Amino acid sequence: MIRLTTSNLDISYEERLIVQDLNIGIPQGKITALVGANGSGKSTILKTMARIMNPSKGKVLLDGKSIHKQSTKEVAKQLAILPQNPTAPDGLTVSELVSYGRFPHQRGFGSLSKEDREVVKWAVEVTGMSDFADRPVDQLSGGQRQRAWIAMALAQETDILFLDEPTTFLDMAHQLEVLHLLRKLNEVNNRTIVMVVHDLNHAARYADHMIAIKSGTVKGEGSPLDVITPEIMREVFNIEADIVTDPRTGLPLCLPFALAALPVADRVMKDAERENREELKAAGA
């Protein structure tokens, strides 16, 4: 089932077109990973689908309705987003941070209702943060801090959760901790998750659906087996890679071993070296 789609989407920064004529669908109840080289437009696409940015043309449709024509509060009841490297005010506790996720459900500036407090408690528990509920966020480890922010997003009680590189700057153990949590939320709580992922092997392991982006256009879409291929690695990432099967999961593993094409600077240097050799050879003749 597809509830969230883009229709002929163009996205620009000032006069520069970043994404052109994008048409993708996000499978309901699945984890979708957007992958691509730095500057490919994947984070821009995520932010536009989450209504953080406005498209210059086209639409983002949820259940057939444009999210950019709905009120912020209504969209916030359906979509939650965790941006890159979020920061909390000094001294703010985990429970206080998570309670901010209840804003779309509150009327005016009233205090938390009984239902709000129950949802906050649930979000803290399901992310494994109960022991840290009264701890200031700025005193947590990187993995704990990321779980606290995910709890805040969960407290919005949305069906769809967007995350922009949720494992950036985390060590390997904390990366796995966060990704395991997202998989649990997807499987147990049926959350649709859309995330930008830097590590291809993490994307292949934890995502059901992958979309490979280059220069704002889709170059591959489907299951990890459909997207993690030598051809797509070459076209999207400019790498030559062996694709092997993970014996534990049966999923593809990407093992890069060379650049598919030399960078411009290297090509210029090699051309200069060749010309020098030819000149020396001609002079010797």
Results as ranks from 00 to 15, higher is better:
1 M>V: 14
2 I>R: 11
9 L>W: 13
13 Y>S: 00
14 E>P: 03
16 R>M: 15
16 R>I: 11
19 V>C: 14
20 Q>N: 12
22 L>M: 13
23 N>T: 07
23 N>H: 13
26 I>R: 10
28 Q>S: 13
32 T>I: 05
33 A>Q: 12
34 L>M: 06
43 S>W: 09
45 I>E: 09
47 K>E: 01
48 T>P: 10
49 M>N: 15
49 M>K: 12
49 M>T: 01
50 A>Q: 05
50 A>M: 13
55 P>H: 01
56 S>R: 02
58 G>P: 15
60 V>S: 01
61 L>R: 04
63 D>E: 14
70 Q>I: 06
70 Q>A: 05
72 T>V: 07
75 V>Q: 05
75 V>G: 07
79 L>P: 06
80 A>V: 04
86 P>V: 06
87 T>H: 07
88 A>C: 09
88 A>S: 15
89 P>S: 01
93 T>L: 03
93 T>N: 10
94 V>N: 03
97 L>S: 03
97 L>H: 08
98 V>P: 00
100 Y>F: 15
100 Y>H: 09
101 G>E: 08
104 P>H: 14
105 H>V: 09
107 R>W: 13
111 S>Q: 03
114 K>T: 12
115 E>H: 12
115 E>W: 12
117 R>D: 09
118 E>K: 09
121 K>G: 00
121 K>E: 10
121 K>C: 04
121 K>V: 03
122 W>D: 04
125 E>V: 07
125 E>G: 03
125 E>K: 12
127 T>F: 03
128 G>V: 02
129 M>C: 04
129 M>R: 00
129 M>Q: 02
130 S>L: 14
139 Q>Y: 11
150 I>T: 02
152 M>E: 04
155 A>C: 13
156 Q>C: 00
157 E>T: 14
157 E>H: 15
158 T>M: 08
161 L>K: 04
169 F>E: 06
171 D>M: 01
173 A>I: 09
176 L>G: 09
180 H>Q: 15
184 K>C: 00
185 L>D: 08
185 L>G: 07
186 N>S: 11
187 E>C: 04
188 V>R: 07
190 N>L: 09
192 T>H: 00
192 T>Y: 03
192 T>Q: 05
196 V>Y: 00
198 H>V: 06
198 H>P: 05
201 N>W: 06
204 A>W: 02
210 M>D: 01
217 T>H: 07
222 G>I: 10
225 L>P: 02
226 D>T: 08
227 V>T: 15
228 I>T: 08
229 T>P: 10
231 E>R: 11
231 E>L: 13
231 E>C: 10
232 I>L: 14
233 M>H: 10
235 E>K: 08
236 V>W: 01
236 V>L: 05
239 I>M: 00
240 E>K: 13
246 D>L: 08
249 T>N: 09
253 L>Y: 14
255 L>K: 13
260 A>P: 15
261 A>Y: 02
262 L>D: 10
264 V>G: 06
264 V>A: 12
266 D>F: 10
268 V>D: 08
269 M>I: 09
272 A>G: 00
273 E>L: 10
273 E>T: 03
279 E>S: 15
282 A>E: 06
